[in-house]
Design a protein around this nucleic acid. Sequence first.
DNA 1: TGGTTCATGTAAGGGGTTACATGATTCG
DNA 2: CGAATCATGTAACCCCTTACATGAACCA
Lengths: 179, 179
Amino acid sequence: MNTLSYGLLSMLVRKPCTGYELTKLLRLFWQAKHSQIYPLLAMLERENLVTFELIGQTGKPDKKLYTITESGEGALRSWILEAPATENLERDEFLIKVYAVGLIGKAEAMQLFQERSEALQERLHRLEAEMELMNMDEVRVTDYASKQFGRFLLYRRKVGLLKEELSWIDWATPLIGRV
Amino acid sequence: MNTLSYGLLSMLVRKPCTGYELTKLLRLFWQAKHSQIYPLLAMLERENLVTFELIGQTGKPDKKLYTITESGEGALRSWILEAPATENLERDEFLIKVYAVGLIGKAEAMQLFQERSEALQERLHRLEAEMELMNMDEVRVTDYASKQFGRFLLYRRKVGLLKEELSWIDWATPLIGRV
DNA sequence: TGGTTCATGTAAGGGGTTACATGATTCG
DNA sequence: CGAATCATGTAACCCCTTACATGAACCA
């Protein structure tokens, strides 16, 4: 059982999903491709941590709706209670480029930051749009008992971090100076 | 040439380093183990992007001091000018645990957040201590022309992000409610 | 006296990406 | 009329971690 497996289980606690849906939902905190997710779901099913129902469709490929089992929920719960690894991973080639920014001209450096800023703003808007959909979905997402609660917390975290990085860019660009 | 190779080159632009040093310096933006770094340095040397000088030591193992070549600097410069990949990667099992936080009791949830907070504060203190060392090292790190400039920007970014996550925790914990 | 720092390397195996494969529907 | 969406899967390969290997100096 790797970490991603628990990520999939944590999604399925909220509601049954297809592998396709999981791939998209997972992007909030753990990016993974479908080619990794489908085999993992098959493994979880062999281990009886999830079950699936085959749903035939016309015009679209058939889909498998996965549901978490009691055994799966138990496995997830005990994993959550384990102490989390303190080291977490960030890999972002933009940061390497910033590190060696002195190698390129000021105009190119400004462009690097501006493009980053635009990409971050776009992600921020998409996130905020998704958050609004969630608010309509259920009455009280801010409630610990709500199944949306965890997702709601993570949205807020990401929004805060995106805004922080944007304000870092606003702070940094004047330091690069006039082109 | 993978992304990590460029990360190594970007470090070597600032000053010659040993593999051991690079492993530590790299933690600011790209976590990698020495077992990955040493073979990569050997590869970069074969490709004439870096050279090394063997320095014999007594009481400690001999070390290899790597220096970037002109060809290496050229390769790095053109990579920086390429458009960066928009997708960046975050993998943090704490986030999965938050997502499924409803599965565990409020007391355990509070503990999860508190331990995270402590770990973040420790990292923040270590970072701020490192930043002070850097300030003494050179006169004007805030200067685009300074070789410390890129590193300085990344420190500031990380400090901001750490503080933002800490304030997110302060916002989130009252929502969990009374234990 | 036991843990940390310095210092470099190899081997095995798991984790993750890219590419291949298929195909109807819907939107701009 | 081309691109995106829905939908699942396999194979090859690279990236990265864990474990093995060695050993003196220094600090608590």
